[in-house]
Design a protein around this nucleic acid. Structure first.
Lengths: 138, 138
DNA sequence: CTTGAAGCTCAAGCAGCTTGAGGGTTTATG
DNA sequence: CATAAACCCTCAAGCTGCTTGAGCTTCAAG
């Protein structure tokens, strides 16, 4: 049996975060030692690894809860799991698109400032005046 | 003079958000009507436009506060403004890089699931097992 | 048996808003 | 000029996904 600290080291998830996940229902209530400390089995370590991996991929707590729920019904069709992953993919793609617009705009703003004084600073002027933008970025 | 609703329409910033910005010190305390309602001039509209534009570019409230502070000293050198914009650019680039790794991983996960059942679902298996990843994505 | 590391719970804090309750003000219309 | 709709006010709490802190208990090594 692992202590919460062992589990933390094994998965790279911080101790208070593990407790938080338990509270959020991603991990079931852990068994306790006589002195009321949490003790974990390797099955729980695997689940936490799953959670960490999903969080790293940007999935929300709710989506992960849903995936865990699904993973407990091996006989069910897996289109829900596919859908969750696909939705996350399009969320990520939307974010990338938006950030690339911001990147372009920031490159433009930062490369156009050849002034030494705030008075003529392109950064400040560009922010004040959306019309200076090449492109809609919001 | 504009009411807070007029200002909201003019800038696309929601009414409670305008009040929030005032509280955060991005907008100065507005003048009030006899009945204690906020009234704005076009100068304040311009400042809010500036704030919105900066927020759209992902700048934090603190960074914006700093830029506003700078913009009020036209005679100062503008390297601080340049620095803020450049920092934001590298933040954006780091985010894009990370998201592109996630995108690749999600594409791989979603395109490999040819199962109909959770039992063999690649999505679930990939999440459970980081070793299936091509690449470190965190 | 003591001591220091690690564990416990509960509450509050972070960013950047949003939402809701319970009011008061303005303004258009009859 | 009265009334009603639309708008405004303040203050407090909620959202996500944790993190931090206080104040206390348990565990393991020496």
């Amino acid at each position: 049996m692992l202590t919460i600290g062992d589990l933390s080291k094994a998965t790279g998830v911080k101790v208070p975060t593990i407790r938080y996940y338990e509270q959020m229902g991603l991990l079931s209530h852990a068994e306790r030692s006589e002195g009321n400390q949490r003790r974990y089995s390797s099955g729980e370590r695997d689940r936490l690894t799953f959670i960490r991996h999903a969080r790293d991929l940007g999935l929300t707590i709710d989506a992960i809860r849903e995936l865990i729920e699904l993973s407990q019904h091996p006989e069910r069709p897996c289109h829900d799991a596919d859908r969750i992953a696909a939705e996350q993919l399009s969320t990520v793609r939307r974010k990338i698109e938006r950030l690339q617009k911001l990147e372009a705009e920031l490159v433009r703003i930062t490369s156009h400032c050849h002034s030494d004084q705030i008075r003529d600073c392109y950064v400040i002027r560009a922010l004040a005046n959306h019309d200076l933008c090449q492109d809609e970025h919001d």
